[in-house]
């Protein structure tokens, strides 16, 4: 794997700009990660105040996305980056869209608490929290891998989504069964299903960012490839 040295340009200001850009993505990621942690806590303790804070804080995440996007545009216009620098900036521009969407998914989950629509079924709530913890761990791993542009770590995190997906499917079947003989309004169940779906989508967004990390380090677009092929392809590249 080729190491990306961001701070070796002749232009010291370009070094600083790239470093600031990367740090700002980390700051945005940290913000969204905290949003998910707070949301899970709000679900566990049935704390509408904390969930409300998460919903309001999403505006901050949105603003961060706009600012980082604008900075990417500014750097492209002023610095004319090439090769790995250009890939990094383009990928950051894509990654922040995924991070912002994660923020939106979290906001939707938090609304379950503010609307007092948390599942009454203890098993569903426990599984929801379990998926949430896995998504939070995956998010943490993704941002760590991004901070170091660590391809191996990215591949490891990528794999964790399988566990979230299977847990989600199991929970979906269970919830569908409960819905069938529950007297609660259908719209309440739909809210729960949407929240579960949102948790599952966070895992998918993390996967996207892991693919971006590999795109930066390898200079190859590895999206739309199953994990087995991805690993195999990377192994081939390493051998050659």
């Amino acid at each position: 794997m080729r190491q990306l040295a961001l701070n070796t340009h002749i232009s010291g200001r370009f070094n600083i700009e790239l470093e600031n850009l990367r740090n700002s993505v980390m700051a945005m990621g940290g913000e969204v990660e905290q949003q998910l942690v707070d949301t899970l806590k709000a679900i566990a303790t049935n704390h509408p105040g904390l969930a409300e804070k998460v919903i309001l804080n999403d505006l901050k995440v949105n603003s961060m996305e706009s600012q980082i996007d604008e900075e990417c545009l500014r750097i492209i216009a002023k610095r004319h980056p090439t090769a790995s620098d250009l890939r990094l900036i383009m990928i950051i521009s894509k990654a922040i869209t995924d991070i912002e969407r994660m923020g939106d998914e979290i906001e939707r989950i938090a609304k379950l608490v503010t609307k007092q629509k948390l599942p009454a079924d203890v098993a569903i709530k426990a599984s929801m929290l379990s998926i949430g913890q896995q998504a939070a761990a995956m998010m943490r791993g993704t941002f760590d891998a991004f901070a170091r542009l660590d391809e191996d770590a990215a591949l490891e995190v990528y794999d964790q989504d399988n566990s979230i997906d299977s847990e989600y499917k199991r929970l979906l079947n269970y919830t569908a069964g409960e819905m069938a003989h529950s007297g609660e309004p259908m719209e309440d169940w739909l809210e729960i299903l949407w929240a579960l779906r949102s948790l599952e989508r966070i895992g998918d967004r993390c996967k996207n960012i892991c693919e971006y990390i590999v795109s930066i380090t390898r200079g190859r677009d590895v999206r739309h490839m199953p994990l087995e092929n991805l690993q195999q392809k990377l192994d081939d590249l390493s051998d050659s």
């Binding site: 600031n20 700002s24 700051a27 505006l59 901050k60 603003s63 961060m64 600012q67 980082i68 900075e71």
Partner: peptide, 8 residues
């Protein structure tokens, strides 16, 4: 709102 980048 948090300002990530300083501009003059």
């Amino acid at each position: 709102m948090l300002k990530l980048f300083e501009r003059e």
